[in-house]
């Protein structure tokens, strides 16, 4: 195991400072400070209700934060909507949701960014799109049996890979992956793990992975943030943490909460 050395000079692409959010009487986030570096895969874990999904929805522009700041490549930004966040280069890949089953790999890859001719007529330049799709997928080492195959005929892993490929092709700077390995067999998982690692290491893509499964996080991520009670409770590099340590951190938190609840009941 190499020593933990999160080099500070390494380029921080996304940084949040003191993000808070409350829904009525419920305080969801109590000040989240997070840093994502360029080419890094950061895992977010946390119990249901810990604030993980609220935080992600703030990053994708779905909710505005009550307070706190978001810095993208050093500049302060705020997102008014999901498409606004996307315009800034933050793309979310949802499990299986993204692709249209009846469209081909190429058509899905270019969806709503089709190449056309004849101006407003919108005549599709199919040949050109197919060539670019083939080149692009080869470039990021995603092999599909047939670029003209309908998404429906692909395996779950292939569909996920195409969804990731589409997001990266559309100039995403940061990918948010929501349980990217859910409902996937071992071989399929390996494909996605390889794709994610390759994108991070060779293309410099920065990614945030949200997952309940610690084993998946260890496979995919460089660093893990544990969110508890609306804060980042622990920030660990996967190199100096073991799966057991992570589990222990989570369990000890439950234990503490249980005891706290007990003492409150005793009063």
């Amino acid at each position: 195991m190499s020593a933990p050395n999160p080099t500070p000079e390494r380029d921080v692409i996304l940084k949040t400072v003191g993000i808070t959010k409350r829904f009525g009487a419920v305080v969801a986030l109590r000040g989240i400070d997070m840093e994502l570096r360029r080419g890094e895969v950061l895992g977010l874990v946390g119990d249901n209700g810990a604030g993980k999904s609220t935080f992600v929805k703030i990053l994708t522009g779905f909710h505005p934060p009550d307070a706190g700041k978001i810095y993208l490549e050093g500049k302060e930004v705020s997102f008014n909507s999901v498409s606004d966040a996307r315009r800034h280069g933050i793309e979310t890949v949802y499990q299986d949701l993204a692709l249209v089953p009846q469209l081909t790999v190429t058509q899905n890859l270019f969806l709503n960014r089709e190449l056309t001719s004849l101006g407003r007529m919108g005549w599709l330049s199919n040949r050109k799109m197919r060539r670019l799709a083939r080149e692009y997928l080869q470039g990021i080492k995603v092999n599909v049996p047939d670029i003209d195959a309908e998404a429906e005929s692909l395996s779950g892993g292939q569909r996920q890979a195409i969804a990731v490929a589409r997001a990266t092709r559309q100039n995403a700077k940061i990918l948010l992956l929501d349980e990217p390995l859910a409902a996937m067999g071992a071989r399929e998982s390996a494909l996605i793990v390889d794709l994610v690692k390759d994108l991070a290491q060779n293309q410099g893509m920065s990614m945030i992975v949200i997952d309940h499964n610690y084993a998946h996080l260890f496979e995919l991520c460089d660093r893990v943030n544990i969110i508890q009670q609306g804060r980042v409770a622990y920030d660990r590099s996967v190199n100096d943490t073991s799966l057991e340590d992570l589990t222990e951190l989570m369990v000890s938190e439950y234990r503490r909460q249980l005891l706290e609840g007990q003492t409150q009941l005793d009063k």
Binding site: S83, Y94, L97, A98, L99, V100, P101, Q102, L103, Q107, L111, N112, E114, T116, M121, G122, W123, L124
Partner: peptide, 23 residues
């Protein structure tokens, strides 16, 4: 052959996904 037609298929095939993509 047209973008509009492709978007008809996308809308009918995956309403949420197509909307997500900005269709």
């Amino acid at each position: 052959r047209t973008r509009f037609g492709l978007h008809i298929t996308a809308t009918g095939g995956n309403l949420l996904g197509a909307a997500e993509a900005g269709v």
